[in-house]
Design a protein around this nucleic acid. Structure first.
Lengths: 231, 231
DNA sequence: CGAACAATTGATCCTCATCAAACCTTGTGG
DNA sequence: CCACAAGGTTTGATGAGGATCAATTGTTCG
């Protein structure tokens, strides 16, 4: 099923694009469908396409030489990823993109997007805004990792996810669909430590947890853990 | 002493600017002179100026609520910093900028730079290239912090500094002028641990160290520490 | 029902942060 | 020109926070 051009308006980079612009993007894109666990691209591949996720969920991750991975960002529908090839020539993807569930994306040639932006400064500017946001977030996470303890990092990760993609449950909780492993990779710790912290929080009534699932019962309590200055 | 407009061509963001462009930037800028240890701006201040360092050296840092700080980036002459205000409106600086030695910078109003770039896509693109570079570097450092041990992180920090600002000594070493504290903040550890690691390296002949100074004698040895996969 | 995978929990160990004390280096003022 | 102060550095002792490993217990799905 081809992408409806007007839906692309939801993509922050295209918020100021004209209807004709959007049609052009769709015309120059290819639909790619990917199963859970498969990759859109790998770290180190030549960055020949930029992607817009049209359905599903994916993550950007980096691995070190020993195979340990860190989770850089979770991608939801109508978010753009892998766009840096449109800015630098002959760039390689600095991270891999893996589908968290069966997903589809619109792939646009980096070269085309580059050319497209040359004559549409409003698009470049929106892309820049997106990039400054990433820089800020990465700087913040870097500082957290360097100076904060695991419990607080995990609390912040959950709060960030809540803001970005929390789904309200019928009874007022906020549900997040992630494995302990995912959460660990997002907060720079191990599966085991993450599990321990979550168990503790569950005992204290802050959350409710299940397989591949965390329901936040008391967001304010998490904020307190994330913020509390001493200790 | 006013900045020579043509020198601005060294700033990567202005590499493709015209001579007239450069003159305009200088005309719209104010020279600011800052003593060692003083700040150009603080994290949280409204980002009303973008800066180009014209002499000296500075660092971008972030502090957490307990006052611990992390070093995000070292700024040398003819590098731009604090530019994100030109992209987002009403932005605040996400980090503080502190002079490492007596320094001067050209401060340009964010609003003006914004307007300036609107009609000069070649400048926007160069700024984007700069930003993608930061994103990549921060992602990499984030992964390192999450998955690598201190010794390796310190080795990488020194290698990065070598590439960015190493000064060859008469006898073939590469000199870096940083305190242990600075190095610790760059690699996400403490002054004490950094000191221990450096002492060890000195015993092994990899470096030579002194007060506010490290001379790299065997870069290849450091690369080996930075790369070695196991253990 | 059984296989595959996610999560929990306990025991152990290792890396590093922390604190304290002493030691160097550099620049300043008497 | 020496002495001293200030600030950078080293080194040791100690302990906490998590990583790691192993074993067990859910949970989901074909």
């Amino acid at each position: 099923m081809p992408t409806d051009p007007l839906k692309l308006r939801q993509v922050s980079v295209f918020q100021n694009a004209t209807d004709d612009d959007l049609k052009l993007i769709v015309q120059h894109g290819i639909e790619r469908s990917i199963e859970e666990g498969e990759f859109f691209f790998f770290q180190g591949d030549p960055a020949i396409h930029a992607y817009v996720l049209t359905s599903g969920r994916a993550k950007l991750l980096q691995m070190n030489s020993a195979g340990q991975q860190v989770n850089l960002r979770t991608i939801n529908a109508w978010q753009m990823f892998g766009a840096l090839g449109a800015v630098r020539e002959n760039a390689m993807y600095p991270a891999s993109a893996q589908a968290l569930e069966q997903s589809t994306a619109l792939a646009v040639k980096s070269d085309y997007l580059h050319e497209f932006m040359q004559t549409r400064p409003y698009v470049s500017f929106d892309l820049m805004k997106l990039m400054t946001g990433y820089i800020q977030e990465m700087q913040e996470r870097y500082r957290e990792l360097a100076t904060e303890k695991v419990e607080r990092r995990l609390a912040r990760a959950l709060l960030r996810l809540t803001a970005q993609m929390g789904v309200k449950t019928a009874d007022g909780g906020i549900e997040l669909a992630f494995t302990r492993q995912d959460l660990a990779e997002m907060s720079g710790t191990t599966l085991f430590t993450a599990s321990r912290v979550l168990s503790d929080w569950e005992k204290r009534g802050l959350i409710e947890s299940g397989r591949e699932r965390v329901v936040i019962r008391n967001p304010h309590g998490l904020v307190q853990i994330a913020e509390e200055s001493g200790k």
